[in-house]
Design a protein around this nucleic acid. Structure first.
Length: 510
DNA sequence: AGGGAACTGACGTTGGAGCT
DNA sequence: AGCTCCAACGTCAGTTCCCT
């Protein structure tokens, strides 16, 4: 009877996809009968009871890989699925490890010992010698007072183009008011020449003391070009050296540029610094976190505001050999376990691309904010967001043209909201007539959504034109459109009508 | 998965402006 | 002086989003 095996929640999902055998450090194996696939029930079976299970008639098992994991993770190796007897599989494994097998009964009874033998240290060292990181990634071993670590380095010339601007164009961006986009006054005059772009790769998302940043990617302008340096821990013991070098580099820059670094990379690095008993001002450094301005400008324009989404959809860039970020912890654990750097180079590529995307994104944000018309936002929604941003910043001259362009370019779904904002902008800048004509346009709009133009027109006729009868007409129309669930709004409209009737009577009696 | 800021929507409060 | 309107701001609870 074939079985599917795995551990933990994540394991269950993976099993349903590819049915690997996964083993935790405590060597409990979880079995699921294939016949229960519709409503899987997983049970934990300690390895010392495996033989009992096998004796109960469970004879066949799906095995893709057996491995010891520090933490659970998905195997990225590809194997041909096969079905065979467990005893037969263990016999084969024993022949690979060239360790004599006393008896099959012994093997099934002491799985832990078998796995230990399969992963003997000398095997790991052999791979580390064969495929060291230094040979596969462009970089070198660097020293600090606490020890050594690996540092990769890549240079990008000034004419290198990632997105719509060259690095040289981004380098030459004058300071721009990033404080308005980030809420941090210290970024009033951010200068990319003095900024350090930072992105980490970590062993997970959990945060706390269990997660560490095994790679810290740093990007900065040097001369006219751009350099990406990546500090990489070849072993957990290299963390102190890595953090020490990072701290030295941080001391040379005034600003940090990150993507969600404010809530992810920086707190994590700060925790690691504290655990390494290092003083660090990383949290105090002015940080231009690109996530927040990106959300303000492009929220709603694309399916989400993740860095990779903005990279492909906004900047039009595609990565050639990228990996999903959720694979990264697993690839690093493999590297630590085997010393084989043949796969980890993809993490270097991923990190490098993240940093280049941040640079391009910072350039794009500058472009649309500095001169939205010249930046030619691609979508109406982008103009709309920019308009609201300028409006919030009190820049009405820039806001209104953005709304007007947005209205021409957006779809019917968004047009209603754009018209609301544009009419409100006209009203508040003393352009009552323009607002008035827009409310009328809204009243004729086939995709009308609410009573907004009628309520606004009622206010306009009551307070500006003093035409109370006309105002009452608009209130009545608003009452027919407003949902009766919105009791408060109905109540307000009824009060308005009552007041207008009083004013009308007063007017007529004069 | 964990953390936490930002966002959203509903509701209440406050204060300035204009009118009677 | 007192009233009304309106916009801006505050609070709260629940939700969304992003990083590996």
């Amino acid at each position: 009877m074939p079985l599917l095996c795995g551990t933990g929640k994540r394991g269950r999902r993976e099993i349903e996809r590819s049915s690997p055998l996964l083993v935790k450090r405590n060597f409990k194996i979880i079995f699921k009968r294939k016949s229960e696939a519709r409503n899987p029930k997983f049970e934990t079976i300690p390895n010392d009871q495996i033989s009992n299970v096998l004796n109960k008639g469970v004879k066949r098992i799906w095995i893709l890989k057996i491995r010891i994991c520090f933490e659970f993770r998905y195997s990225d190796f590809e194997f041909e699925p096969f079905t065979m007897d467990l005893k037969e599989r263990l016999r084969q494994l024993s022949s690979i490890s060239k360790v004599p097998v006393a008896s099959i009964e012994e093997e099934t009874g002491d799985l832990k010992e078998r796995l230990d033998r399969l992963l003997r240290p000398e095997k790991v060292f052999r791979k580390r010698e064969l495929y060291p990181i230094e040979k596969l990634v462009n970089g070198k071993i660097v020293s600090a007072s606490e020890g050594e670590t690996f540092r990769a380095e890549e240079y990008f010339p000034p004419d290198f183009r990632y997105g719509e601007m060259t690095l040289s164009e981004i380098h030459n961006i004058p300071t721009y008011p990033a404080h308005l986009l980030s809420g941090d006054e210290r970024l009033k005059e951010i200068d990319f020449k003095k900024a350090l772009f930072l992105d980490t790769e970590t062993t997970g998302l959990s945060g706390g003391t269990g997660t560490l940043a095994f790679m810290v990617g740093l990007g900065f302008f040097q001369g006219d070009g751009f350099v990406v340096q990546q500090l990489f821990m070849r072993d957990y013991s290299e963390e102190k050296a890595s953090l020490s070098i990072l701290q030295d580099i941080l001391n040379s820059y005034q600003f940090l540029v990150t993507f969600n670094g404010r809530h992810y990379d920086i707190p994590l690095l700060e925790t690691r610094m504290i655990l390494s008993r290092k003083r660090s001002q990383i949290r105090e450094m002015p940080n231009f976190d690109l996530l927040f301005p990106s959300r303000k400008i492009w929220k709603g324009a694309y399916e989400n505001c993740r860095l990779v989404t903005l990279e492909s959809r906004l900047l039009g860039m595609e990565r050639e050999e990228d990996i999903p970020s959720e694979w990264i912890p697993s690839l690093y654990f493999d590297y630590i376990q085997t010393g084989d750097a043949r796969k980890i180079h993809r993490v270097f590529y991923h990190n490098r691309m993240d940093i280049l995307t941040m640079v391009a994104l910072a350039g794009r944000i500058h472009l649309v904010y500095h001169d939205p018309q010249a930046a030619r936002p691609r979508k109406g929604v982008e103009h709309f967001s920019l308009g609201r941003l300028f409006w919030d910043h009190g820049d009405r001259e820039k806001a209104i043209p953005c709304f007007e362009i947005a209205l021409k370019r957006c779809d019917d779904e968004l047009a209603w909201e754009v018209m609301k904002w544009l009419s409100m902008a006209f009203k508040k800048t003393g352009q009552g007539e323009k607002a008035h004509s827009l409310w009328h346009e809204m009243m004729e709009w086939p995709y009308r959504k609410d009573a907004y133009p009628y309520i606004e027109a009622a206010k306009y006729y009551e307070h500006r034109l003093k035409e109370f009868e006309k105002a009452i007409e608009y209130v009545d129309q608003a009452l027919t459109l407003i949902s009766f669930h919105r009791e408060r709004d109905v109540e307000l409209l009824l009060e308005r009508k009552k007041r207008l009737l009083k004013k009308k009577v007063g007017n007529e009696s004069r």
